[in-house]
Design a binder for these strands. Structure first.
Lengths: 258, 258
DNA sequence: TAGTGGTCTAGACCACGCT
DNA sequence: GCGTGGTCTAGACCACTAT
C-alpha cells in the first residue's frame, strides 16, 4: 500500500513553493512564509483537512528557526485557515475559506470588490463638541468638530448613509476632498494610521429621509453600524454612525478561539 | 521639577501587583501577567494614556524573559487595551475600555450579563441533508441532520428566534436537553470545543411569524446572524440562522490592526 | 513510546521616533 | 545618539495524542 490519502488528510510535505523568500526584505520572514502557505491553501494546493509538516522540520528545510515558522503558522490560525492540535499536528480547516472583516472603510471594501464607489455630500458643518461627543472622542467639551453626512453609492446604486464626526485636527477637510475620496484615504494622507476600532452593529426601521436616500419602500429595515476609531497613539480620530441597505451589504466576521 | 504627569501620560513603573505569579500553574506565565495588567487597566490603576515600563525592564523585574513579557503585552494589544509604538513605548489606549465579541452563545452572553435565559422549543426534526446544507457543513448529501427552532427569552422577554442545524453526531439531542440548556453547553458536554466561527450579520424586515414570536408590531426590522461553527479538528458542528430584536440586542466588535 | 504543538529562556541585531 | 519595540535565533522542557 502506498502512502495515499488517510481518512481525513495526508501527511504530505509542502514542496519548494517557498522560493523567493528574501531575508533582506522589509517584510518579515514569518509573514513571507505565512503568505505562501495562505496562497497554497486558497489554491487548493493544500486541500481542506490536509496535514502540514511539523514546525521543526519545516523550519529546518526553510533554514528558519522554529519560532519564526511558528509565528507564520499562528498568523493563519488567527485568520481561521489552520487548526493546531497538540500531539497531532496542524491541519487546513474544513469548510469554505473566507475573508475577514478588517479595519477598512466602506469605500475601500467597494474598491476591492471592483465596484465603483461614489459619494454625495449631504452636509458639512463645524460644531462645538457636546459633552456626550467629547466623552466619546476623548476631547474637550466645546472644541471644534467636523460633522459630515454622506450618501455612498456603488455602481450608481445608493448603498449607505454615512454620518461622521471628526475632531479638531481634521475640521479643514474640504467638500471636494470628501466627494473625491474615502474618509480613511483622506486621514491616511494626513499621516493617520488607524489601529483600533470599536464597532456596534444593529438594525432598525429606516427613517423617511433614509428611505428616500437609499431608495427603499415604506417601513424597510436598515443595518446600522456605529464606530469609534483610534490611531496608533490611542487617540480617537473618527466617530461614525452609518446605515446600510441590508439587501446590498452585510458584515462578515471570523472568530477564532485562542 | 518632579517627574509628574507629562503631556499625555507618565512613565511610571507598575508596582508589585504581580505577586502570586505561579510558575508551576497550568496557566501560562504570559497569561498570568496579561491578566494582572488587564486588571490594572480596568481598575484605572493604569489610567488611559499612561505609559508602561519597557519590555526588558519589566521582564527583568518579574524574573521573566523578554519574549514572555512581550507575549503578555501582545495579548492586550490584540484585545485593544494597549497600543505599542516603536521608538516610543507602550501605552494604555484612550477611549472607553470595552469587551469584545467572543466565540460564545447567546445563552452564555445572557447568563454573563445576569439575565435569566429561557428557551421555548418551537420544532425539532431530523432530516436528510440537502446539497446546499451538505456543502455548508462539509458532510455527505442525504446524511441525517437535526433541525431545531427555538425562541430565546431573557427575563421573560422574547429576544431571538434561533434556527439551527447540527450534523449526524448530535441528532440524538433531546427536547428536554434543548429546553434546559444552551446549545453550546450541550455540545461542550459532549466533548466538543468550538474553535472557529464564521458569521454574517445583516438585517431585514421581520416575517409575520417572527413578529408574533418576538412581540413586534407590523413591518419591524430584525437583526440577523448566520453562523457556521467548527471544532478543534476543523469539522463543522453547527449551522445557525438567528434573528434578534434589534432594540434588545446588538453586536459589539473590536478590530485591531496588526 | 514517539511525535506533536505549547511554553520559556537568553541572548542578538535592526528600524524607528524622539531629542 | 539613545531608547523603544520588531524580528530572529538555537536551544530546552513539558503536556498532550496517538499507537
Amino acid at each position: 500500500m502506498s502512502n495515499e490519502a488517510a481518512t481525513t488528510g495526508e501527511a504530505r510535505l509542502p514542496l519548494g513553493l517557498f522560493v523567493g523568500i528574501d531575508r533582506s526584505s522589509p517584510v518579515p520572514l514569518y509573514h513571507q512564509v505565512s503568505e505562501r502557505i495562505e496562497k497554497a491553501i486558497r489554491d487548493d494546493t493544500l486541500p481542506a483537512g490536509s496535514k502540514l509538516e511539523n514546525e521543526i522540520s519545516l523550519g529546518h528545510r526553510l533554514g528558519l528557526s522554529r519560532p519564526t515558522v511558528r509565528r507564520a503558522i499562528q498568523e493563519l490560525v488567527d485568520k481561521g485557515l489552520l487548526v493546531r492540535r497538540r500531539g497531532v499536528g496542524t491541519q487546513v480547516v474544513h469548510g469554505p475559506v473566507t475573508r475577514n472583516v478588517e479595519l477598512t472603510s466602506l469605500y475601500e471594501d467597494l474598491e476591492r470588490s471592483a465596484q465603483k464607489p461614489t459619494t454625495t455630500l449631504l452636509s458639512r458643518r463645524v460644531e462645538a463638541a457636546t459633552p456626550e461627543l467629547a466623552e466619546t472622542l476623548g476631547i474637550e467639551v466645546g472644541s471644534p468638530t467636523l460633522h459630515i453626512s454622506r450618501l455612498r453609492s456603488a455602481d450608481g446604486v445608493p448603498l449607505a448613509v454615512l454620518d461622521n464626526v471628526l475632531p479638531e485636527p481634521f475640521v479643514e477637510l474640504t467638500e471636494d476632498e470628501l466627494i473625491q475620496h474615502g474618509l480613511y484615504q483622506l486621514l491616511r494622507a494626513r499621516g493617520v494610521t488607524m489601529r483600533i476600532a470599536k464597532q456596534r452593529i444593529g438594525a432598525r426601521t429606516a427613517s423617511r429621509e433614509e428611505e428616500r436616500l437609499l431608495d427603499l419602500s415604506g417601513g424597510a429595515a436598515v443595518l446600522t453600524m456605529s464606530r469609534v476609531a483610534f490611531d496608533a497613539t490611542g487617540r480617537a480620530v473618527e466617530y461614525g454612525r452609518h446605515c446600510y441597505r441590508p439587501d446590498l451589504y452585510t458584515f462578515e466576521i471570523t472568530l477564532v478561539e485562542r
